[in-house]
């Protein structure tokens, strides 16, 4: 069961603001979901290869060719804030 601290921690990792008054309800909902998930954890899966993909294939490779051209004006038309071809964001401190 997730504690309130854990809910806060994952909300922070996921960069989603949760108002303090919403935390308890969220915790309850998440725990209900983990309650549903719980029965899966008890299954004996020793020796079972994890299945990450729905197809049993290997990665196809593309040839090393430049196929894309400059479309930044089009792409930046839908951007929240741009200047001189750059996307602008609040100051990044390294």
């Amino acid at each position: 069961m997730l504690s309130l601290d854990e809910v806060r921690r994952i909300a922070d990792l996921a960069r989603i603001e949760v108002p303090p008054e919403g935390l308890a309800a969220l915790q309850q909902q998440l725990n209900a979901i983990f309650g549903l998930v719980e029965q899966m954890r008890a299954v004996d899966t020793a020796g079972v290869e994890p299945m990450a993909h729905a197809v049993d294939m290997s990665q196809r490779l593309r040839e090393d060719r430049v196929t894309e051209s400059d479309r930044h004006a089009e792409f930046q038309f839908i951007a929240p804030q741009v200047e001189d071809g750059l996307y602008l964001v609040p100051k990044v401190i390294e």
Binding site: T45, V48, E49, P50, M51
Partner: peptide
Amino acid sequence: YLQAQRVRRL
């Protein structure tokens, strides 16, 4: 996550 992927194969 890994357990879910294993059960997925089952």
